[in-house]
Amino acid sequence: MAISIKVNGEEHAFDGDPTMPVLWYVRDILNLHGTKFGCGTGQCGACTVHVDGKAQRGCLLSMESVAGRDITTIEGLDPNGDHPVQKAWRVNNVPQCGYCQAGQIMNAASLLENNPKASSEEIEQQMTGNICRCGCYQRIQAAVEMAASEMEG
């Protein structure tokens, strides 16, 4: 039986391997390439997507486990890329190579959606799941704090 799933507002039916992780489904089947593969084991956060508005690791979520759920990828975060987190990212010139950044942004957006008053410590705690090998942490922290004050304000 096909798995039905909503991605960025669009309904899809999937009848492939039900154990396929959402990461590979959005990348290989839907050609939504913003979500990245970094470790495949839930350790880096490059694959972060929102499932019903909450950040989850796309590489660990099988398609069968998200049947009927609502998935948002970086492409669906904001139609113009103007989510406060995305804007704060650009103001702070956060990225180096940029590869981890979609996952970082998705995690930060989910954090602030659920806790707009997040403290520095809470930000640090939640963002610890996302690796940036280029080492942009200082700017990530600053950008999330900036977005938090905008979302709160």
Binding site: H33, G34, K36, E75, G81, P95, I105
Partner: peptide, 27 residues
Amino acid sequence: VPMYDLHDITTGKARYGADITLDGMKF
């Protein structure tokens, strides 16, 4: 001058190696 791909990076549009897709492509 910000890095050229800054906007694309923040919106998931930036293209890395694995983001290339060709017709009839295998994995």
